[in-house]
Amino acid sequence: MTGLALDLIGAQVMRPQEGLHRGTVSIADGVIVDAAVGRSVDLTGYLVMPGIIDLHGDGFERHVAPRRGAMKVMEEGLIAAESELAANGITTAVLAQFHSWEGGVRGPEFAEQVMTAMAKVRPQVVTDLIPQLRFETHMLDSYAGLPDLLAKWQVTYIVFNDHLPHDRLAAGKKPPRLTGQALKARRNPEVHFELLKSLHAQSGQVPSALDTLCATLARDGVTMGSHDDQRAEDRARWRKRGVRISEFPETLEAAEAARGAGDHVIMGAPNVVRGGSHNGNASAIDLIAMGLCDGLASDYHYPSPRRAAIMLAQSGVLDLSAAWALVSEGPARVLGLEDRGKLAAGLRADLVVLDPNNHRVVATMAGGRFSYLSGDIVGRFVA
């Protein structure tokens, strides 16, 4: 907690069920309070919004691995990534790290380094960093030790992926970009191809192994999600295992199946900003318009959640309150974070201040502490 006590006055404030209205946000000891605390900061002309909760992002990869061998102290890379998160209004960030046969920055060894560094960095930074493991389902040799690894790394959120090119492998053909992928993993291309074929050959063992693993993780209280669902049957199988988050469903069918059963649907904010998926999957804008999306994630681009919310409001798909909820209140519900996501008394003082002319972030506060301040607004706080 912090002893910082401020009354932010004069701004247009985004309140639950009220939308934007001129008002005051009072902060004391890291939370929002319902009575003035005594030191006023005039934010007339600005917008005060709930802090952004990023449900899934791997943009930090370029900070911890800018080029091979360049980053020797991984904690410094994560601290640099936190600065970028704060500059984009993100107050809670899920950092998604692969545990994959792909190797390199997606391999198990690199995951060990990232998770160890994250555990060291989290108490040192202002942004709330939540580790997520993206686990490749065909890594059967890793199943037995995975629950203990998650406990060791303090990971309470796992998402299951399957990025094997099964159609090509079933036909005995090499997948595209095999050589480049192998070199990134520091493997001989032929050795890499044999690895992919051996993993594909184990496909029949994966469903029952997943049943057992998910049952263990559910008992441990781990939040679980599936990635790139394509069919209603996919979602039904995951749901039966206790996997209640559908991350980036590729089709309308999968998204409808998830929401119809009460599961959460996460879409990528870059999908909104681009006007559609970069690889022809379901349009996030269409799913949002149909009420099939609970929250937007940065995916690979940290500015996108803020930009997507503003674009959805400006285009008339949603009003600003509903659009912003997709990057704040909605994600809080998905993650079960009852202490944030709205500007309401008793909740964490997580907020972002926007310039109304261009909607750029000028200040970010997480838990009552500033993680970012820039431009003329600084004078208002230090005067």
Rank of each mutant, 00 (worst) to 15 (best):
A284S: 02
K240N: 02
P270C: 08
L210R: 11
R239W: 08
G180N: 12
G262R: 12
A257E: 05
H278K: 09
P249I: 07
K173A: 13
K174E: 15
L292G: 06
D229F: 09
F193I: 04
N279K: 14
N188C: 11
Q181P: 06
G275Q: 04
Q230K: 10
P175Q: 00
R231S: 15
N271Y: 03
H278A: 07
R274F: 08
V243H: 12
P189G: 07
E190A: 07
V243L: 12
P207Q: 00
A209W: 02
D220L: 11
F248W: 10
D286Y: 12
A255F: 02
D234L: 05
V222E: 06
P207D: 02
L292P: 06
K184Q: 14
E233G: 00
D299L: 03
A209T: 11
G276W: 02
R235V: 12
A236L: 14
R241P: 11
C293E: 08
A232R: 03
E250R: 10
A269K: 04
A182E: 03
E256N: 10
Q181N: 13
G225S: 07
P189D: 05
G291L: 01
A297L: 00
D211F: 13
K173Q: 12
N279Q: 05
R244F: 05
L178M: 07
F248H: 07
H264S: 11
M267V: 07
L183P: 02
G204A: 07
S208N: 15
Q181F: 14
N281D: 11
P249S: 09
S283Y: 10
T251G: 06
R219W: 12
E256F: 13
C214V: 08
P175V: 03
A297C: 00
Q181S: 13
S246R: 07
W238R: 11
N188D: 15
R241D: 13
R177C: 05
P176N: 14
R187K: 14
I288F: 01
A185Q: 06
L252Y: 14
